[in-house]
Amino acid sequence: MPAAMFAIDLQHLSKSYGPVQAVQDVSLRVPPGELFGLIGPDGAGKTTLFRIMATLLLPDAGTAAVAGHDTRGGMRAIREVVGYMPGRFSLYPDLTVAENLDFFAALFRTTVRANYELIRDIYEPLAPFRDRRAGALSGGMKQKLALCCALIHKPEVLLLDEPTTGVDAVSRQEFWQVLGQLKARGITIMVSTPYMDEAARCERVALLQEGQVLRVDTPAALQAAYPVPLYAVRATGSLYPLLQSLRAYPATRTVYAFGEEAHLSLLPAATAAATTGTAEADLLGYLARAGHAQVQLRGLTPTIEDTFMELLGARPAATAPTAR
């Protein structure tokens, strides 16, 4: 078998469950050694794509090749070289931590000892609990163990479906350091995540929506794609009243909570219609009249999270229940 040009090569994939079109004409190519991210709202088709790549599901149309093998007919070969971590429930709750790991190693005719180096950083916090049943682990501890199990046979291609959901902030950092090490060993990684700080750490990301690829780009290009000036607004007191005032402001285009600040974009007409010289001065006047103290307004470089919401926020299903 010649070395594959692409570690993952998806061409015109479609898959529906009854009337639901889960994946619709998706084409993606990931070269060997790339760290590739899949982002998009729930129901965008990410898990279906993972299941097709892991040979658990056949597409209705199109082809999928992983590590040079077509998923049709290449099931055995693919399972040998792929590490797959499904979103949930991949462990045996009645086996202990150590038994789960041994089981997955044995499945691939290797041992935990042989590949311990790969999992050490993730496994170490679990080691004190090696004799605890996996079912009695906390949610985040289960995720870490599941990742160790997916890694223990030293796969060529890693498929990780929301591996850090439920994982705490410290462990998420360590986890991404480990992904960096795996990438340095030449392992191809496809990972989905709801955390936009993680999406920013991928080399490229595909933005999915309703089964289709909306866009494939580097995180930097995605950030740069934000179309209008963006502001950060803060004031004393709770953020919620500030959000409500900003939502009620006629010139507001979008407003989203971002930690202790609100991120705001204004309608283009706001500048033209400014009564006090600038759109910014108008806004500050409005907020002061609305009773907000010590309002700070500053221009902002958009993050990938801003772009994500910009590109996906327009559709009606995502309209906030508190209508503006």
């Binding site: 729930d42 979103g87 949610g139 929301e162 996906l312 995502a318 229940p321 508190t322």
Partner: peptide, 24 residues
């Protein structure tokens, strides 16, 4: 208990609006 685990950025914020309303 982790109501927003695995939830995308837009939906997460909508959920917080519900929390603010309930708290109010």
């Amino acid at each position: 208990d982790e109501p927003t685990g695995g939830v995308d950025p837009i939906t997460r914020r909508q959920f917080w609006d519900l929390l603010y309303e309930a708290a109010a």
